[in-house]
Structures are given as C-alpha cells and as structure tokens.
C-alpha cells in the first residue's frame, strides 16, 4: 500500500515561504508528477514527503498514518536523487543492498534481492564494480535498483533524468514507466520538463510559487488548463496567449490557442501576419508569425509548408478549441 496525503502542508525557510499550503491526494499505485518552473517548490515538496526536511505546518499522511514527525528511514519510502547519490566507496552490489543491510536483512536474502533487482535493470554484469566505473545511464539504473530493492511504499524521483543526454533520457523514461507499471508501486516524480510529465504521469501536479495551480491527468491539463499559468506551462510549443481587442471579441480578457489549432491560408483568415521564422522539422512545420496589434503567434502545421520568412499569411484560430481566461487569469468554462 502506498497512499500519500498532504493536508495544508507549509514550509518556510527563515521568513521565506517556499510551500504555501498544499493539499494533495496520491492514490496507491498512482504515478504522480510534480512539474513547475525552477524555484516553484516542487523539489522541496518532495523532500518534505521524504522527511529530509521538516514541515512548518500541515500534515503528511502515508496510508492514513501521520508521518510529519517520522524520520525519513521510518517512512518506508525510497528516493532516486538527481545526482544519483551513489556511495562511491561501495560496489554496485553494496550500493543496492545498503538499505537492506541497514534494515538488518540477512546476507543471503539480501544477495538474492539485490541480484533480482540487478537482473531487472540489466546490471548483473556490473555488480562488483564501483559507481565511478559506470556510465551515466548505468549509475542511474543503480540508483533505481537501490530504490526498488527495498520494496517501498512509494518511490520518490527528484529530477532523475536531468543529468543524462537526450537519447538516454528517452530510454530511461520508458524504462521507469515500464518498471513502475509492473511493480505497481506509487511513484512521485519531480521534473521541470513538461514532456516527461506528460508521458509519465497518471496525474500531474502543476506547482507555481509554492502553490498547486492544477491537478489532473495529462490530457485534462492539456485540454482544460485551469488558468493562464498552466496554459502557458503545459504544451510545447507554448500555447499562444492573446489579450486585448482580439480576446474581447471572444468574450474574454485573454484567449489562448494552441499552435496546432491555428489554420493558415494564403488568402483569407481572422488575423493577417508576416512569417518571421519557419522551422521545418519534417513531420511538422512551425511558423512564427508576427501579427500587428496581436503579437507573435506560433503555428504548428502538419507536413511541409512552403512558406518563407517574409511571406504574408492569414491565420484562423479553431473557434471550438479556444481557451478563454478572465481578468484574474482563471479559465472561463462554457
């Protein structure tokens, strides 16, 4: 079991509030991703759950038990650190088995479990090496091995992929997803990369300035952002946000339209603009169009589009996919 509940959790460092009252429910077996810009408090929130920091206020419950004052070791969670935090003076075997050793698991059982974990992670051949002799991806796997071998109530991941190169990152992302799926263990995953968040999460928690902006499944967040912040943060390229007269026409202070929901035409459309940059990435073409009185609009068109910088183009937002926001930045539901 691994149900985690946060009730009014607060954290201040000195006089600076880093986490300002967070309520959250993480169901057993769920994969939850905390995402937000740097400094939003997502890592601090994870460390509060881990017990590496004390809460200033509120309660943290694991399986219904208040653990706010329980030391990290007794919370039954395991964590994968951004830097991997492997013990440099121990072999891979000892690294993975350290938690079991601390728990007083007999040596034979320990070995059996470590080897099982190593087999899952393709680390069997490296069990007697030191972390210093491994590649980045292998180190990452050791860190994950260390986390799974203890059969924790939940995994905590603190930006685990940010030290890997792009290709490896995609592989490891898949591997983490597969692993969590097969183990069925609750996972909380912190990242600033919204692609990681979208691909991994059952549930995304968008944090900003120490508060939760929105909680929901990736598609909920994508299709129905609760406010301007989430709208701007989720999705790549970013949602086009337009305010002023063009927005008022649609009955909102600001409207948002995703790049793929803008159609182009050489002759007719709602907005007239000039292409400033055209990026051709094969499957798609991204156009950056400067529209007078409105600003820069990003357009995503499927396939190749023969438009050169400087070309005149007409844009039309898909009326059914427009997001409306009021003056406070909150979404207006129809």
């Amino acid at each position: 079991m691994g149900k985690i509940e946060l009730v009014g959790v607060e954290k201040t460092f000195g006089h600076v509030g880093v986490i300002k009252g967070v309520d959250l429910q993480v169901e057993d077996g769920e994969f939850v991703v905390f995402v937000g810009p740097s400094g939003c408090g997502k890592s601090t929130l994870l460390r509060l759950i881990a017990g590496l920091e004390d809460t200033t206020g509120g309660r943290i419950l694991i399986d219904g038990v208040d653990v706010s004052d329980t030391p990290p070791a007794k919370r039954g969670l395991s964590m994968v650190f951004q830097s991997y935090a492997l013990y440099p003076h121990m072999s891979v075997r000892s690294n993975i088995g350290f938690g079991l050793r601390m728990a007083g698991v007999p040596k034979e059982e320990r070995n059996r479990k470590v080897e099982a974990a190593a087999a899952v992670l393709n680390l069997t051949a490296y069990l007697d090496r030191r972390p210093g002799q491994l590649s980045g991806g292998q180190r990452q796997r050791v860190a994950i091995g260390r986390a799974i071998v203890r059969e924790p109530k939940a995994f905590l991941f603190d930006e685990p992929l940010s030290n890997l190169d792009a290709a490896l990152r995609v592989n490891m992302r898949l591997e983490i997803a597969r692993l969590q799926n097969s183990l069925g263990t609750t996972a909380i995953y912190v990242t600033h990369d919204q692609i990681e968040a979208m691909t991994l999460a059952d549930k995304i928690v968008v944090l900003n300035a120490g508060k939760i902006e929105q909680v929901g499944s990736p598609l909920e967040l994508y299709d129905h952002p609760a406010n301007l912040f989430v709208a701007g943060f989720i999705g790549s390229p970013k949602m086009n946000l337009v305010s002023g007269a063009a927005a008022r026409k649609h009955g909102a202070a600001t409207i948002g339209v995703r790049p793929e929901h803008v159609s182009t035409s050489p002759t007719i459309g709602e907005w007239e603009g000039v292409v400033s940059v055209a990026e051709h990435v094969g499957s798609d073409t991204f156009l950056y169009v400067t529209v007078p009185d409105i600003g820069d609009i990003t357009v995503r068109a499927v396939g190749e589009l023969a438009l050169k910088p400087g070309a005149k183009v007409f844009l039309t937002p898909d009326i059914s996919r427009i997001h409306r926001f009021d003056r406070d930045g909150n979404a207006v539901r129809n």
Binding site: F13, G51, L52, E53, D54, P71
Partner: peptide, 8 residues
C-alpha cells in the same frame, strides 16, 4: 537545511 532532529 535539514530536519529538526539533525539540527539538535
């Protein structure tokens, strides 16, 4: 930055 316990 650590817990009360470690501070004490």
């Amino acid at each position: 930055m650590a817990t009360r316990q470690t501070h004490i």
